[in-house]
Design a protein around this nucleic acid. Sequence first.
RNA 1: GGCGGCGUGGCCAAGUGGUCUAAGGCGACGGUUUGCAAAACCGUUAUUCGCCGGUUCGAAUCCGGCCGCCGCCUCCA
Length: 490
Amino acid sequence: MRLKLYNSLTRTKEEFKPLKKGVVGVYVCGPTVYGHAHLGHAKSYVGFDILVRYLRYLGYSVTYVQNITDVGHLTDDADEGEDKVGEAARREKKHPMALAELYTRSYFEDMDRLNCVRPDISPRASGHIIEQIELVKTLLEKDYAYEVNGSVYFDVSKFADYGKLSGRNVEDMQAGARVEISPDKKNPADFALWKKAEPNHIMQWPSPWGMGFPGWHLECSVMSMKYLGKTIDIHGGGLENQFPHHECEIAQSQAANDAQFVRYWLHNNMVTVDGQKMGKSLNNFITLKQAFSGAHEKLTKHYDPMAVRQLILNSHYRSPLDFSDAALFAAHSGHEKLTETVKAVRKRMLQAPNGPIETKLAKQLRQFRVKFEAAMNDDLNTSVALSVLFELARVANKLLDQNTTDQTLSAIDALFGRLGDDVLGIVKHQYEEQVSDEVIDKLVRFWIQRRNQARRNKDFALADGTRAELDNIGIVLEDGPDGTTTWRWK
RNA sequence: GGCGGCGUGGCCAAGUGGUCUAAGGCGACGGUUUGCAAAACCGUUAUUCGCCGGUUCGAAUCCGGCCGCCGCCUCCA
């Protein structure tokens, strides 16, 4: 069976065939870096992380591009609001580029903790102004765009397919239902390619139309074209960007290039928190840093990033996901079970008797792999794929109760590695048991107490024995004149 | 107003015409193991898939109606 993906463009699951054999270009709409990443980012980017990992598992050579939006994304409607990065910069009293850098780093840090593979290229919108201006020029030359007062708009009436992706009809949409119509536009659905900047606007660049900045939609067209070509295999993004962002990308790109822009459109569904949409005004807006530290009133504890990842993989990427403390807790418990099993297998592997794997078991492991791949091939059904890991864990734990062979255990470990690590990213190559200084201090103090108890009981043999044992480990006890005991490394 | 999605056990969640008396996880309960516990393992926990009607030899899965919930079209992945 081959990989099938649900293509938003055709609204069907289609067999995935890349344009060039064995090579896949993936472009995913990245974050606008004006704040810390939140649970919504986690769902979206873990979802596409799985796509990239699985394509690589299947043997494709994948180029994964995910932009960083640091200019042009407005707070209001696509044309009238303030630049998000600019506004946040003003609020935090930073230069916009410093603010973008801060949150870009924060974003990468959070994604690393979620064990998402880094994109191969993370292009910044502000680093591609020249290319964006070039695209606007092309669209003007081809008469798909018009200039008004230093701004350039795309003329939607000239692009027949506008609305095809999101199933909308320009005529049917209530023009300006919730948004003021810009007087400069010929048609309310027209969108900005280039915006004139007022003098106080910090981020602005010279252009043939005067000082200004690019429209938000432009960057994705330009950067995907630059790094992946005019026609790309897969474009991913959050469902909320299907309209208008992705429609606009299609219109710009295809008008400019006279070529299909994207062959497979993938859209990730949204998250809710306790059943409600997550919004800054709703007091249920949870950043990843808050989830990882537990610093949010909706959370009873801090959650390991892997628990968040596990919860995301527990459901399908096209289904909405409700984050609740209970759901996170359940995911955490489940993840712990898998982790403990993998650790136990690896530990036992080292001392298990030499011997081959039983034929019957080898067959069962192959079946697990078949089931896993069938699930993943079916539009990345991670929920079922994950269930295979739990079945594998059960088999492994049963074998651990018996005196099984080293080859059996290493086969199980290899399967955990291939499926759980390479594809799902919830099993790690290595688990280093790190002991903090605080824990060591508590342990030593515990022994100091025991020794002092022995001293009070005049059991000097035990007291001295304890001190000698600690000394062997490299820990020196020092009894002060006031009866207190401190310790230091030898 | 326009567009779309969802409703499966106490909770999360797969399954979308027969292998479904419905995967997997969490939780709960009983058992094995254990000095006790934890972990692990075994078993129990939906004859039923929001409600009503229809199509069909057969429906959680298709169609119609109703009820409920959610999202997008502003911000937001």
